[in-house]
């Protein structure tokens, strides 16, 4: 088989696979759309209940979507320590973000509506 034929075969196979993957994406999107609609539903019902009770709706509903409180690291970590850590090529304790923690994950509809998956952001 010539190189041109081989390339043509690859392009054709890729097209077929792309269709299958696109169909799978539609299924994922339908599931995600339903999930997000239910999330919104829960929030709106909670708001309505809070409004009926006369509570502060914003304060109550934010619990449904927000993260646990941000852990503020020890403010006593000195600037000198930080620069020494950087110089040594180690992670900078004064700057390092919170470690990965499943509890930190939460629905953020605003972020979702900005478009692409955050860590795969190549187009911006």
């Amino acid at each position: 088989m010539s190189e041109a034929d081989d390339r043509a075969r690859k392009v054709k196979a890729r097209r077929q696979k792309r269709k299958l993957k696109a169909a799978a994406s539609v299924a994922i999107a339908v599931t995600a759309g339903l999930f997000l609609a239910c999330q919104r539903g829960v929030t709106e019902v909670q708001k309505a209940i809070d409004a009926a009770r006369g509570d502060d709706a914003d304060a109550q509903t934010s619990d449904a979507t927000s993260d646990p409180a941000i852990t503020v690291k020890d403010a006593s970590a000195s600037a000198t320590d930080a620069s020494q850590a950087l110089d040594a090529g180690r992670p900078d304790a004064a700057l390092a973000r919170r470690s990965s923690n499943a509890k930190d994950a939460a629905v953020d509809v605003n972020e979702h509506r900005k478009g692409m998956p955050v860590r795969d952001n190549l187009l911006e």
């Binding site: 696979k17 792309r18 539609v26 999107a29 995600a32 759309g33 979702h112 478009g115 692409m116």
Partner: peptide
């Protein structure tokens, strides 16, 4: 416009990038 539309955009973006584009 609703969340499904955005989910569609994100889903295909992710799948296509992970497997074809990059």
């Amino acid at each position: 416009t609703n969340d499904f539309y955005y989910a569609m955009f994100r889903a295909w973006y992710l799948v296509c990038h992970m497997t074809d584009v990059m």
